[in-house]
């Protein structure tokens, strides 16, 4: 039994539920046990780091400190000191905190000062922070994965999309290359898929630019979708909830913006693993994606049951009313 500590991150509960569901289906066949860090909190994504380093790192390091408390409770080989994250942003943040607390002792001291308020402490270097893909490829191994494949994805033309945050900056040299890592290619190939060389594999999906500069984000998304389309891919495989969300949820708007008609589904690599391990699409959250993968999977004879249409969409595309603004008097009253 391979045991690890799991830091799921916020998105696994919401937009990337399919990731979590599909991950859970591959644990047992791969003899993998993930113990969730108790009372974990948001890693702060990218926002805090831009404003003030100490609160940002403290927020992240709290999770690491909590994880060290659980190190002993996970008795097994290999994984007791290893925290794995399925999300690239979480992975980068956790790895970054561990790295900089060590490299800059003064920062480490400040962060620990903050943590001590909650009776916590984290000694940098105690834990190994690794991404799920890294564990699957290098600890579990491609051979072990290959042995579990009961429904090879032969003929499924897929582009591997690693995203930009996973391989860079690669503090601990975990990946084969910073710009053209091939771990995801190798994994998908092990599942039997027809993997297409995808030069855009580490290009940015736009991240949170969809919120603050949508036009920039749309262009980045367009390049990725167009690149996959031109190479004849049926679908894309993602390792990061953010990437998956951007390409899935913003594809329609991107098409609208550029007057294009791309239809490029994107699934989590764990969903494809689940399929290859013989699970049914519904168990893997397939069908929940906005750009449907039904036709793509039909190429290899996988039928995706029609999911229920979402509850009646709102008729008019207008915002909900905002709360009325406080008068100065009301505000004073409330503060009292």
């Amino acid at each position: 039994m391979n045991k690890y500590l799991l830091y799921p991150g916020c998105s696994m509960d919401s937009s990337a539920r399919a990731y979590l569901e599909s991950l859970n289906t591959i644990l047992e066949p791969l003899d993998l046990q993930l113990d969730e860090i108790e009372d974990w909190n948001c890693c702060g994504a990218t926002e805090y780091l831009g404003i003030n380093l100490i609160p940002a790192y403290s927020l992240i390091a709290r999770n690491l400190a909590l994880a060290t408390k659980q190190m002993d409770s996970v008795n097994g080989t290999g994984g007791t000191r290893t925290v794995i994250t399925p999300c690239s942003a979480c992975y980068l943040n956790l790895a970054k905190a561990d790295h900089y607390m060590q490299e800059r002792p003064a920062l480490g001291a400040k962060v620990n000062e903050a943590l001590s308020a909650g009776g916590l402490e984290y000694k940098p270097g105690t834990l190994d922070v690794r991404h799920l893909l890294d564990i699957l490829v290098y600890d579990i191994g491609l051979d072990a994965i290959k042995r579990k494949v009961t429904r090879p994805l032969n003929g499924l033309k897929v582009v591997p999309y690693m995203g930009c945050m996973l391989p860079r900056p690669d503090y601990k040299h975990r990946w084969s290359d910073h710009e053209h890592p091939t771990e995801l290619d190798d994994l998908l190939r092990a599942l039997g898929a027809d993997v297409i060389d995808y030069p855009l594999t580490t290009e940015c999906c736009g991240g949170h630019m969809t919120q603050i500069g949508p036009e920039t984000a749309f262009e980045l998304i367009r390049r990725l979708i167009a690149g996959a389309h031109e190479r004849g891919a049926y679908l894309m495989a993602a390792v990061c909830p953010m990437c998956q969300l951007n390409i899935d949820a913003y594809q329609l708007e991107t098409n609208r913006f550029f007057h294009t008609h791309y239809h490029m589904p994107i699934l989590f690599f764990t969903q494809l693993m689940g399929l290859a391990f013989g699970r049914e699409p519904a168990e893997l959250g397939i069908g929940a994606e906005l750009v449907s993968a039904r036709n793509a999977l039909a190429h290899i004879g996988v039928e995706v049951p029609v999911t229920q249409e979402p509850a009646t969409p709102r008729k008019k595309d207008e915002g909900l009313p905002m709360p009325r603004r406080w008068t100065r008097h009301e505000e004073k009253e409330a503060v009292k």
Binding site: L53, I54, R104, P105, A106, L107, K110
Partner: peptide, 10 residues
């Protein structure tokens, strides 16, 4: 030498 970063943090 302490890095300027450290000084800043300190």
């Amino acid at each position: 030498e302490r890095s300027s970063f450290e000084k800043e943090v300190a």
